[in-house]
């Protein structure tokens, strides 16, 4: 506990932050290498509980790579090395090898819907079932709760047993969110969740994210700066694998301290 406090202090010195909310994820001096090539440089972030944190930056700046360090999805790639420290609720996530436990606590929604070729019900029940929940009533309740949580229950409640792949792109993405919620995670990572959606579906997902932050800590990678401005509380601007600036979203978009941030958010590059 003492260690955590000093870490918070250390991070706060680096990034001037309104330390109102509780810290959820603390990233300290994170470096990541793909073989010989370094993709992340000394990333330190203090991600607050029950807030939406947006990661912005041009393509290839490392924001998705960073996101994937938080649930250790990068472990799937051969030759990835990580140094530095990531703690969630004070626990070092790279200390133990229990990625299963980590990933049940830190859910992830991907860029494109990756529902399985199963029914809507089975998609949402997939994670809990794999945890060993078999009781039909418990699963039924969990599926309904998750679909309601993803604001899609009313649209699909009469066709739970039909293939999930017959839904529209926006609906599929919300089922993906429901599938993640069904695991009852603390943190939800989203990797450009609306980049493949039309404006109306995007709006629905954005509304959903805004509602969800009362229950979850959300970290979202987005290409869309308006989206970051609309839905996030804090924004981190990534460039070439470094965090250039991390602050309250309204500060980043109105009075950024770094010239590069200003150039990016005003659309001068990227």
């Amino acid at each position: 506990m003492v260690m955590m406090v000093t870490e918070v202090a250390a991070v706060n010195k680096q990034q001037v932050s309104t330390a109102s909310a509780q810290s959820k994820i603390l990233v300290d001096d994170l470096n990541l290498f793909y073989g010989e090539k370094q993709a992340l440089f000394n990333v330190s972030l203090d991600i607050k509980e029950k807030e939406v944190t947006a990661l912005i930056g041009p393509s290839g700046c490392g924001k998705s790579t960073f996101l994937r360090t938080l649930n250790r999805m990068n472990d799937l790639i051969d030759g990835v090395r990580v140094s530095g420290n990531i703690t969630i609720d004070g626990e070092d996530i790279y200390a133990s090898n229990d990625v299963i436990k980590l990933r049940t606590k830190v859910g992830m929604v991907f860029q494109k819907s990756n529902l399985f070729p199963m029914s809507i019900y089975d998609n949402v029940a997939y994670g809990p079932r794999m945890q060993g929940i078999k009781n039909r009533k418990v699963l039924d309740a969990l599926v309904e709760e998750s679909l309601r949580g993803a604001a899609i229950w009313d649209e699909v409640k009469d066709r739970l047993k039909t293939s999930a792949l017959g839904l529209s792109g926006g609906q599929q993405q919300r089922i993906c969110i429901a599938r993640t919620i069904a695991m009852k995670p603390d943190v939800i990572l989203m990797d450009e969740p609306t980049s493949a959606l039309d404006p109306i579906s995007t709006l629905k997902v954005e509304e959903l994210i805004t509602q969800m932050k009362k229950d979850y800590t959300i970290v979202i990678v987005t290409h869309n700066m308006q989206q970051a401005a609309r839905i996030s509380d804090k924004t981190a601007f990534f460039l070439n694998g470094e965090v250039v600036e991390y602050d309250d979203t309204n500060v980043i978009f109105s009075t950024p301290k770094d010239q590069r941030t200003e150039d990016y958010v005003t659309g001068r590059f990227g």
Binding site: N71, M73, L76, I100, K101, L102, R103, T104, G107, M108, F110, K112, N114, L115, F116, Y126, G127, M130, Q131, C176, R179, T180, M183
Partner: peptide, 23 residues
Amino acid sequence: VPASYREGSLALGTTKLQTLYKV
């Protein structure tokens, strides 16, 4: 089999064997 199925399943906290067998 799309790589996204693998990722999607593993991201839900399943083991490699469960992902293999179920998806």
